[in-house]
Design a binder for these strands. Structure first.
Lengths: 194, 194
DNA sequence: TTAAAATTTGAACCTTGTTTAAAAAGTGAT
DNA sequence: ATCACTTTTTAAACAAGGTTCAAATTTTAA
């Protein structure tokens, strides 16, 4: 890889990080191309040298965050503990991540509307990859007779959906701190698969 | 109430219904004031005679849908069946509603960002009212020893969150039809509170 | 040093929400 | 039916923010 390509990649990443930062603060619509650029002392026009458009930029934010999340989950998949404990740890990790990366992690993607299928496909794949890790533990846990579930996909959707929803109501200064949330959610969600 | 006031109310409702219709098809950003107006053979400017701005209109869509949903739920609260069955029916109703009213029912409200707290308060109250109905069955079911839950709020959040998430992935032509979805979700979610 | 390539700029454009003055339509009293 | 008054609608203009593009600037490599 040439030096120039490396520089482009680095710049892209800076822009993505800037976008993530601002989006987590102001949401998708609140984060203007101008502000994202200003953060890096650029003008908004320059962003279009690196990204096709705002959608593209946001997608790549999504992808970066998802990629990191997948890596974080991976670890738990191979821990030498019961499947119940593995799933519990994955639940905790997911909750921590969903709260930390409020906007980006859980951005709402609507295939039909805003986004082109070109942009969408890799993201959906990454999402599947992420979700698949949950499927894996659940399946293995079933083989080991720790879990009993007939509709794997729905069970997983219930787990992820309920956790993602936390963003809708969680306030850092509310009744529960993150740790309590993680534990109670893990307790209750494990009841679903057991 | 004067005739003119009645006419205004009727027109407001027409606009709200038009907005709901278009939003459910194209999402929040996809529904332009122009298209909402065109549906009723008006120009977008006229909408501002009835609503302060787009936010206001959307909020009122939200409120209408929520009000109807609350009424539909209410019925199940008083059915002369076990609490488990009541909750099961409420779950089914919620899922049907969440799918039918995709965009509107579950519109994401972000207090800090786009919306003024004036507009937000009544919606949050309505939401609480809706959620409270779930709390009620769960509490009553606990008194009757049908359910065992210590963190009521979190249990309810898990129920509603997992159901609302269905919108993120549900396709009318997918593997599951609505009825199957309702039954499997009910089965699994009841495990949470039991 | 210089020509080509890469990057950035700033201005212009487009779409969409919002405002507003004026036009049109409706209403009620005479 | 007419006139004054109110309600409703329009069309045009504006503002904000995403997007494009030709030109200017900067970087790169020989």
């Amino acid at each position: 890889m040439k030096l120039s390509e490396k520089r482009v990649l680095k710049k892209k990443e800076q822009i993505i990080l800037s976008a993530i930062k601002i989006m987590n603060r102001k949401g998708y619509n609140g984060a203007t191309m101008e502000e994202i650029a200003a953060e890096l002392l650029m003008t908004k026009g320059a962003l279009y040298y690196y990204f096709k458009n705002k959608e593209d930029l946001i997608f790549q934010c999504h992808e970066l965050v998802l990629t990191n999340a997948i890596e974080e989950l991976q670890v738990h998949l191979e821990e030498p503990v019961s499947y119940e404990t593995r799933l519990r740890n994955m639940i905790k990790t997911h909750i921590a991540y969903a709260i930390k990366e409020k906007e980006t992690f859980n951005m709402i993607l609507k295939p039909d509307e805003t986004f082109s299928s070109e942009q969408l496909k890799p993201i959906l794949l990454k999402r599947q990859e992420y979700a698949h890790q949950f499927d894996t533990v659940i399946k293995e846990g079933m083989k080991a007779n720790e879990f009993t579930i007939t509709e794997l996909k729905i069970a997983r959707m219930i787990l992820l959906g309920s956790m993602n929803w936390i963003q809708q109501w969680y306030q850092p200064d509310g009744k529960f701190n993150v740790e309590e949330l993680q534990n109670v959610y893990a307790d209750y969600l494990l009841k679903v698969v057991k």
